[in-house]
């Protein structure tokens, strides 16, 4: 019997082939949960939902009305929600002095307002039966990375929101936690993976000697989602010890790429 047997789970950010949301949805289904998957690309969601016997729901996480409708549709499709994961994100790399007001607005909408409104929509639904809410954060909410200010600041802000929501709604049996991956081979890092030597620059920062995979993050989500877990308000580092060492600097990465180019 699966570790999530009988649970109803919603995973947002599952509309990119090979992304974390997809791995989380597949793993939840393999553990016995019935899963609703949400995102912006209907065809990709339907392909995933068909594969795991789940439900596909449209959602633009930059739009609060869409978030509310998505949570409502998922709850209707599943008959309620016990587990909800926000695996959306926008991995913008832009120097601090060059970050535009439009980029900041969009980052805020996706990575702080979106999670805020997602949690707001979930709390009433989970009240009564309890539940587990999981926010995918980032190691960069703790350790710095160059040209990543808007991303890091909103992820860190949402981690603090996780603590506050956990504190307020624990008495309703709702646990709220976040997971911080490090560099992971997903569509978000496809650009970096395409540059020879670039990913190698990160390896020395990983005590366990490898990057995480979407499946590692999915395993972390199963733990936080299951009834075995008695944690709340926590930010879990699922990155093989990256935060013990810190990210490589821009100079380190440039040197690694130059070395690979010969």
């Amino acid at each position: 019997m699966g570790r999530l047997a009988g649970k109803r789970a919603l995973v947002v950010g599952a509309a990119g082939r090979g992304n974390m949301g997809q791995a989380i949805a597949r793993r939840f289904a393999a553990e016995g949960a019935r899963v609703a998957v949400a995102g912006r690309h209907r065809d990709v969601l339907e392909e995933l939902a068909a594969g795991i016997g789940g439900v596909a729901v449209d959602c633009d996480f930059a739009d609060g009305v869409s978030i509310g409708a998505m949570v409502g549709a998922a709850a209707a499709g599943l008959g309620g929600i016990d587990i909800a994961v926000n695996a959306t994100g926008w991995g913008l790399l832009r120097p601090f002095l060059e970050t535009s007001a439009e980029e900041l607005d969009r980052m805020y909408a996706l990575q702080l307002r979106g999670p805020f409104q997602f949690f707001q929509a979930l709390i009433p639904l989970m009240t009564g039966r309890g539940g587990s809410i999981i926010q995918i954060s980032s190691a960069t909410a703790t350790i710095l990375f160059h040209d990543h200010d808007a991303y890091m600041a909103t992820k860190a802000g949402t981690d603090h929101l996780v603590r506050s929501v956990a504190n307020q709604f624990g008495e309703r049996g709702i646990r709220v936690n976040s997971i911080s991956p490090g560099v992971t081979e997903t569509p978000m890092t496809a650009g970096a993976q395409a540059v020879p030597g670039l990913m190698d620059a990160f390896l020395e920062s990983y005590p366990l000697g490898r990057y995480g995979t979407p499946e590692d993050i999915a395993s972390g989500c199963v733990w936080l989602a299951s009834d075995e877990c008695f944690m709340t308000g926590q930010n879990l580092q699922v990155n093989g010890g990256l935060t013990l060492r810190g990210n490589p600097s821009a100079a380190d990465i440039a040197a690694s790429v130059a070395a690979a180019a010969g």
Binding site: G170, W223, F230, G233, N239, G241, L244
Partner: peptide, 19 residues
């Protein structure tokens, strides 16, 4: 083997550390 986690203090305080 499921936890790619190292060097962490795992908080099992039921949220008491928030208070």
């Amino acid at each position: 083997d499921e936890a790619l986690v190292t060097g962490q203090v795992i908080d099992v305080t039921a949220g008491q550390s928030l208070r």
